[in-house]
């Protein structure tokens, strides 16, 4: 385990695939927060704090300041009291050109599948303002062939922008395009393996999505520690489809996996295809960048004849 996510406020917006919980503001109890920070310190974990609508009291900030951390919060709730911000929950309805600019920060852009036709034009409005743009598409599980086609086209348009902006990989990143180019192995979310979440009720969850879906999903508490049953299933080596896959940038979201296939180690067809469209566009982008004569520290991305690695591992076909 490398880091702990602490949900400071029930109203914290989603920064990932799960829907916004739309809950009222309610801060975690201060004594619980102290215990959680102590737990992280003892176990050598860094902390990501999820903030919501509530303004953090000084005594909370004082505790938080004791430990290495980053904040994840909605841009609507940014205050002068917090730094190291990851901004989440931008939607295409927001006026992206007026978004707070912070070239040292990452931005998380959550886009619903119904808005993907606008993806490239909207993302372009954010370029130059942030170190990194993380695109997270909502309702991937409802993608149809038409959505795949639109997403592929939008990735293509985005890649044309990014390939010309990039002189050295790392200058400006967009997760769905640049990550695969620099990765040499899987770099998934790894919820349940590299990080775990503490909710305001003092219980641990695999990730915030599991808490907001059903608070009975807990995997331990501060008093008794973390107890993830069948924890091996969260590891890549126990995922028959993912372990043969080279869409290294895929989040391999275990919550989406469970939602769509009932198993945390098995992705849906839709998640696989979306990740492979990204992979393949990254491959084309890399070739174009290299043709421009730029020295890119990246391995070649091989040709493959599938968009869903399930086709490789279906044991009954």
């Amino acid at each position: 385990m490398q880091y702990l996510i602490i949900i400071l406020d029930e109203s914290a917006n989603s920064f990932c695939y799960y829907p916004n919980p739309n809950r009222e503001a309610k801060l975690i109890n201060l004594s619980l927060l102290k215990k959680a920070i102590f737990y992280a310190q003892k176990n050598g974990l860094s902390i990501n704090f999820l903030l919501g609508k509530a303004k953090l009291p000084k005594e909370y900030l004082k505790e938080i300041d004791k430990v290495s951390h980053i904040f994840i919060m909605s841009q609507n709730h940014i205050s002068d009291d917090v730094f190291d911000v990851f901004v989440s929950d931008l939607t295409l309805d927001d006026n992206l050109s007026e978004t707070h600019s912070n070239s040292d920060s990452n931005i998380i852009l959550r886009i619903d599948k119904s808005q993907i036709a606008e993806l490239s034009s909207k993302v372009i409005a954010l370029t130059g303002k942030f170190k990194r743009i993380n695109i997270t598409i909502q309702n991937i599980d409802l993608f149809t062939q038409k959505d795949f086609d639109i997403y592929a086209q939008e990735l293509e348009k985005l890649s044309e922008v990014f390939e010309n902006k990039i002189n050295i990989i790392g200058d400006e990143e967009c997760n769905v395009l640049s990550d695969r180019i620099v990765l040499e192995k899987m770099n998934n979310c790894d919820a349940g393996v590299k990080h775990i979440t503490l909710a305001p009720n003092g219980k641990f969850y695999i990730c915030p999505a599991f808490y907001y879906e059903d608070d009975n999903n807990s995997v331990g508490d501060l008093q008794n520690g973390i107890n993830v049953k069948n924890q091996q299933l969260y590891h890549l080596s126990y995922a028959p489809i993912c372990r043969v896959c080279d869409a290294y940038q895929c989040k391999r979201c275990v919550w989406l996996n469970r939602k769509t296939t009932l198993e945390v180690n098995t992705p849906s067809h839709e998640q696989c295809v979306v990740s492979h469209l990204e992979r393949n566009t990254s491959k084309k982008m890399l070739i174009k960048i290299q043709k421009r004569g730029l020295q890119v520290q990246a391995n070649e991305i091989p040709d493959i004849d599938y968009l869903d690695p399930f086709d490789k591992v279906n044991r009954w076909k």
Binding site: D141, Y238, P240, I241, T260, T261, L262, E263, N265, T266, P267, S268, H269, E270, F310, V313, N314, R315, W316, K317
Partner: peptide, 13 residues
Amino acid sequence: NLLRPFLTLDRCT
């Protein structure tokens, strides 16, 4: 999607 775990299940996993 619900069949995928069954069709990829192997002995060792």
